[in-house]
């Protein structure tokens, strides 16, 4: 493999991993506060379609980002209302959200299928850095949203693990009763985490319709939201490990077609199963080592003060 080919493979890996980075990071926020939101696929789809409609109407990709995040955030707020205030079953509510988001996005996007994106995010080479061999050439020749993800992850990790608000958020996921006794507003924090988490899922969807594809079609995410959910477990709720997992998934996708071009008789059906096989493997390992992995103790449990 020549250097050029390697650079392009790495660049494609990052591009394909980025929607997963956004969506899974959002889910880490929600789950760390104790709320499981299985509706990632639906929120990504609504984010993608809202972003696309906004860019077609306004011609500004950044307004598209805003619309995508707000759209998915609104959906997530519904989930928060159901699960935090009304204490509905989080699994059921999340699944309903996934299905509802899928249907809603199809409905909203009906007249936007096949419409060209008037202003997609284009690749920007970072001066200097993009000249560096291999890594520089692949990491620093991406579009603006990928650079956002580069900044977001370390910042998100720092915020979640090294600041007081981050600690409060995790406290709500570990032991909401204790957090409440300490005077932390569990309900407010869970609401905020679910909504902001949903906004990141929307950003992941918006990345697809604004930068990666960049267009709208029904079911644009094609299951990425479910992979993002699995990635959260794969990364054991750590944003830094998440990046590794997301790019691993990205590389499997990017490798598939390149293997074909290089004349490797890889079975495409088997290759397309790989992300799911990897997910199942991690789930299996998790079943054995659950205690050693940092799963939020109160994940999935509704909190009420009386209990």
């Amino acid at each position: 493999m020549s250097e050029d080919q390697l650079v392009r493979l790495l660049a494609a890996t990052i591009a394909m991993g980025t929607p997963l980075v956004f969506a899974a990071f959002g889910e880490i926020l929600a789950e760390s506060s104790g709320v499981l939101n299985l509706g990632v696929e639906g929120m990504m789809l609504v984010g993608a379609v809202a972003a696309f409609i906004a860019v077609v109407v306004t011609g500004s990709p950044w307004l598209g980002v805003v619309a995508g995040m707000l759209g998915a955030g609104a959906l997530a707020a519904g989930h928060a209302l159901l699960t935090v205030t009304l204490r509905a079953d989080q699994v059921t509510a999340g699944l309903a959200l996934a299905l509802f988001g899928g249907g809603l996005s199809s409905f909203l996007g009906k007249s936007y299928i096949g419409v060209p994106n008037p202003a997609p995010f284009a690749a920007i080479s970072v001066p200097g850095l993009s000249q560096l061999p291999i890594l520089g050439r692949s990491v620093f020749t991406q579009d603006a949203l990928v650079y956002v993800s580069y900044v977001m992850i370390p910042l998100g990790w720092w915020w979640l693990y090294r600041t007081r608000p981050g600690l409060h958020l995790r406290a709500c996921g570990e032991s909401p009763g204790t957090a409440d006794a300490m005077g932390i507003g569990v309900v407010a924090i869970r609401y905020a985490s679910v909504i902001v988490g949903g906004m990141f899922a929307g950003l992941g969807g918006a990345y697809l319709s604004l930068a990666y594809v960049p267009a709208w079609t029904e079911n644009l995410t094609a299951g990425l939201g479910w992979i993002a959910l699995a990635l959260v477990i794969f990364a054991t709720w750590n944003p830094l490990r998440l990046v590794f997992g997301a790019y691993l998934f990205g590389s499997v996708e990017a490798m598939g077609f390149r293997a074909q071009v290089l004349g490797i008789q890889a079975n495409t059906i088997v290759l397309r199963m790989m992300p799911y096989v990897a997910t199942l493997t991690v789930m299996l390992l998790l079943a054995f080592w659950r205690r050693r992995l940092a799963m939020p103790s109160a994940l999935g449990l509704p909190y009420s003060r009386e209990q």
């Binding site: 050029d4 392009r8 494609a12 394909m16 079609t217 094609a222 077609f257 390149r258 071009v261």
Partner: peptide, 17 residues
């Protein structure tokens, strides 16, 4: 038959080749 992200990735792989 109809999966824009995948089909785009496939085209990119060909262009890269």
């Amino acid at each position: 038959w109809y999966d824009p992200p995948k089909e785009k990735a496939a085209a990119k792989a060909l262009i890269d080749a």
